[in-house]
């Protein structure tokens, strides 16, 4: 069956539009009514369709996008408060407890580990580049040479 023959494609377009609205506006004070309005669905119908397509409710998806963004900002060196605020979380305490629950560590430890990793990538890149590529680029001698 071709896409144009697919009977519910107009529904997909509206749900995808709402998902992309979340992706673009997650840092705002979004609520479900705003998002379902964006998809021009009733709240109940919207939640059901969204979950069918993405296996998460819109609320769970919004929380996931916010958490991913906060992790990205922490890895870039933003403060915990900054990452929390710029990702749309209501308070640092809510963010910190949710972060620990979902990632098994605190935002502070996560940030510290990611910054250490970032520094290592910057100053010791050959720790991360497989030999077959590094040797070609003369970043380090190939292990093959050592064996021979």
């Amino acid at each position: 069956m071709k896409l144009k023959e697919y009977p519910k494609i107009y529904l997909y377009k509206r749900v995808v539009h709402a998902k992309m609205y979340i992706d673009k506006n997650f840092f705002e004070a979004l609520n479900l009514n705003l998002v379902s309005d964006e998809a021009t669905f009733s709240k109940f119908h919207f939640i059901r369709l969204f979950k069918t397509i993405y296996s998460l409710t819109p609320h769970q998806y919004l929380r996931k996008v916010r958490m991913e963004n906060a992790k990205f900002l922490l890895a870039q060196g933003h403060s915990i408060t900054g990452a929390c605020e710029r990702s749309g979380f209501e308070s640092v305490s809510t963010f910190t407890s949710l972060f620990k629950k979902e990632n098994g560590t605190t935002p502070a430890v996560y940030r510290q580990l990611k910054l250490a990793l970032r520094n290592e990538m910057k100053f010791q890149p050959n720790h991360f580049i497989p030999n077959c590529f590094a040797a070609v680029n003369e970043l380090k001698k190939s292990n093959f040479e050592e064996v021979a």
Partner: peptide, 13 residues
């Protein structure tokens, strides 16, 4: 992908 119609619509957009 889990849902090709949704993924197609998003990537096309």
């Amino acid at each position: 992908c889990h849902d090709i119609y949704a993924t197609y619509e998003e990537l096309k957009a």
